[in-house]
Design a protein around this nucleic acid. Structure first.
Lengths: 245, 245
DNA sequence: CAGTGGTCTAGACCACTGT
DNA sequence: CAGTGGTCTAGACCACTGC
C-alpha cells in the first residue's frame, strides 16, 4: 500500500520522511522547477497519512525555500533567486529604482583541463575536461564585472558549437533550456584582492586597486556541482548588507 | 475571559495574533532573554485557543529565531547569535580550529554630539547627546579591528563613570547586566575603503591599503536602536561565505 | 462551481528532562 | 514520576483561483 521509497527510514517522523520524498522527486526532475507538486489531498491519499502531516512536510520545504505555495492554485517548485547574491550589491538599479539584468557579453568559450580550484569545486579529476567561458558584464551605473565560468564538459556537450552571440544574458535559464541542467542552490565566497594589470584593464580601474572577488559554486537540486565561476569587480562600488538575529 | 491586548486585530488569524502577543511580552522585558515563556498548555488556557494554534504561533517565532524550543524543558527567549556577523570572517580561529572571543581594549569614552551617521542610525536629534567609545580588538591571527561605538546617552547614563578597565570583553552582556538594555537583532553593512593614515597606523597596515568597513546598528527586542558601531579591519584577512537557495 | 491551500480545533500518544 | 515539547490524526470551515 505504501508509496514510500526504499531509503525511507521508518524511525524518522512521517513529516520528515515525506519531506525527503518530495526533495527526491524534485532532485530527480520528476517534479520540475516552476511546476506544481501534487495537491495536499493527493499526497494524503498516496502516502496514507493525515493532511496535517502533509502540511507540516510542505511547511518545512516552503521555509527552506524549495517550494512556494499559492492559495487556490497549488504548491510550486521554486527556482532559487539570486537576490541575496553579492551580484545584487554592485549597483544594479537604474534611476527609477528598478533592478535590471546587467547586459553581458561572452568573450570566449573553450575546452580546458580544469585549473585546481575549478576541479575541486566541480569534483572533476585532472583527466576530465571542462568548458571555460569568459564574460564581461556591465552594470547599470557603468561598473563592470569580469567573470570566468567553468562547466563540466560531460553535462554540457554541444555548448562549444553554439555561437557566442546566441548565449542568453542569464545563464541559468539557458542551462536549463539547452542542457536540462537546473540550478537549485549555490555557495558564494567573497574576498578582497588587488587588481592585476589585465583585470584592471578590463574593469577600467588602476592596477593594484582593490577588487572584490566572488567565487560561486552552483549546484543542481541533487547537490551535484554544475558550475564554478569567479567574478571580479571594483571594490569601490561594492556594498553588502546582512541582518542578524 | 480573553487575555488579548488592545491592539490585537480580530481579523487576523489567531496564531498571528498570539505571535504578536508573545513578541510584545518579550519586547517589554516581561519575558526576558534566556528565560522560558509559559508552557503551551498554559498559553492554551490563558488565551482559550487550541494547542495546535499555540504551536503554530511558537513555530513561526522559532523560525524567525526569536524563540528556541527544548523538549522536556520549555521554550526559551533566544539571544541573537552573531555567527553570521562579518566580524566572524576575520580569521578568529586558532590552530585547534576553535573560535575564540577576541581580546579588546577600550581606548576612550566620551560624551558627544552625534555625528550624522550615528544620529541617523540611533534616531537622535542633534540636541540629544551620545556616548562614543573607541576600541581596538585583536584577532587570533594578530590582525586588528579598530572600532568606534556610539550609544544613546539617555539609555546608558552612568556609563562614563565606569573605569575603562571594567568594561567586559563582550559589550552586549555588559549592556544587559549594567543598563538593562538587551540586544535582539542587528543589521550590518559592509563596504570597502582605503585606509587613511591614522587607521593604517592603528591596524598596522600601509596607508591606502584596502580596509573592510563594517557598520552595525544593533536593536532591542522592540526594534529601538541601541548601538551604532563602525569597525575597520585590513581587507587582506577578510573572507565571507554565503549560501543561496 | 469545483478544487486548491489557509486556519483552527480536540485529543491521542510518544520522548525527553528534571526531581 | 510529573511536566514539557514532539508527532500525528481526523475533520470542520474559510478564502482564493480558475473555469
Amino acid at each position: 500500500m505504501s508509496a514510500w521509497k526504499e531509503g525511507s527510514d521508518a524511525r524518522l517522523p512521517l513529516y520528515q520522511r515525506l519531506r525527503e520524498e518530495i526533495m527526491d522527486r524534485i532532485a530527480s526532475g520528476e517534479w520540475p522547477p516552476g511546476e506544481t507538486i501534487p495537491t495536499e489531498a493527493e499526497l494524503t491519499r498516496r502516502y496514507n497519512i493525515a493532511v496535517g502531516t502533509v502540511r507540516r512536510a510542505i511547511d518545512t520545504l516552503v521555509n527552506e525555500g524549495l517550494l512556494e505555495r499559492s492559495q487556490g492554485r497549488g504548491t510550486f517548485v521554486r527556482r532559487p533567486d539570486f537576490d541575496a547574491s553579492f551580484f545584487r550589491f554592485f549597483r544594479q538599479v537604474n534611476a527609477a529604482g528598478q533592478s535590471r539584468v546587467p547586459t553581458s557579453r561572452i568573450l570566449s568559450a573553450s575546452l580546458q583541463t580544469p585549473p585546481p580550484a575549478a576541479a575541486k569545486a566541480l569534483e572533476l579529476t585532472e583527466h576530465e575536461s571542462c568548458i571555460c567561458l569568459e564574460r564581461l558584464r556591465a552594470m547599470e551605473d557603468g561598473s563592470l564585472l569580469a567573470e570566468k565560468i567553468w562547466l563540466p564538459a560531460s553535462r554540457f556537450s554541444g555548448l562549444l558549437e553554439i555561437p557566442l552571440e546566441q548565449f542568453d544574458n542569464l545563464l541559468y535559464p539557458f542551462y536549463e533550456a539547452r542542457f536540462g541542467q537546473s540550478i537549485g542552490s549555490a555557495r558564494e565566497t567573497l574576498t578582497i584582492d588587488s587588481a592585476d594589470a589585465a583585470t584592471a584593464d578590463m574593469l577600467g580601474i588602476a592596477p593594484r586597486d582593490p577588487v572584490v572577488v566572488i567565487e560561486r559554486t552552483a549546484l543542481g537540486y541533487d547537490r551535484t556541482p554544475l558550475e564554478y565561476r569567479c567574478s571580479m569587480g571594483a571594490a569601490a562600488t561594492f556594498r553588502y548588507q546582512i541582518e542578524i538575529s
